[in-house]
Design a protein around this nucleic acid. Sequence first.
DNA 1: ATGCCTCAGCTCCTGAGA
Length: 260
Amino acid sequence: MRLATWNINSLSVRLPQVLGWLAAQSAADVPIDVLALQELKMTDDKFPVDAFAAAGYSAQWFGQKTYNGVALLSRTPATDVVKNIPGFDDDMARVIAGTVAGVRVIGAYFPNGQEPGSDKFEYKMEWLKGLRQWVKAELVEHPKLVLMGDYNITFDELDMWDPVGLQDTIHCTEEERYHLRALIALGLHDSFRLFPQPPKSFSWWDYREFGFKRNRGLRIDHILISSALKPLAQACVVDKLPRKNERPSDHAPVVLTLAA
DNA sequence: ATGCCTCAGCTCCTGAGA
């Protein structure tokens, strides 16, 4: 089973790339079973459900105008679908969860936070608290759980192109990392670090100043897996290829391979 | 540089992203 997360920064713009990437994986005999998308930036009526169906994917989606928006694509339909964090009042479409082949999959677009001390940062902290409470309960009901998406948080300096210059800046603050570690403390594992990785592995690169070409990036897209799934993990990689496309997203997909 | 790209939209500038 292969699961992936990708912030595509507008599904209208990136639909051909998403379809092309899924087709390429299938052609290489490593089809993606579940794909979580973030930043659809479209209302629900615009979601290209037919295009995904033609590509062999069932879809669940939760959009809004201009910003945010998340979707879950899967080769077998997801059940028990939940949109946003139950019990956490939120104007923004950031979370979609479903059960696929016995695995509880949560796709999430974590708040950016803009700047430590800002209102958006406070919202990010509250959102992280709400998410953790809910995930804790989900884990009780679903021991096989995957929490993946654009976390907008780095774990440590390995996830930063400039650990010194970016110290305590957004995505790299102690407060944000506290919440990320608190998710880990629920019994989740950073699947990427279960395996040897190339140095300076990132999942996002700034569009400006040739960020990708100079590998000035951050690893902020993560796939966390529960302890019940950990023994099944076989690989986790960032696929940098789509970042080399014409008009790429600023994020690259992260792909997890689980045994059967 | 409160910039640098990219995207959406009450679209030819602005807000937001990270």
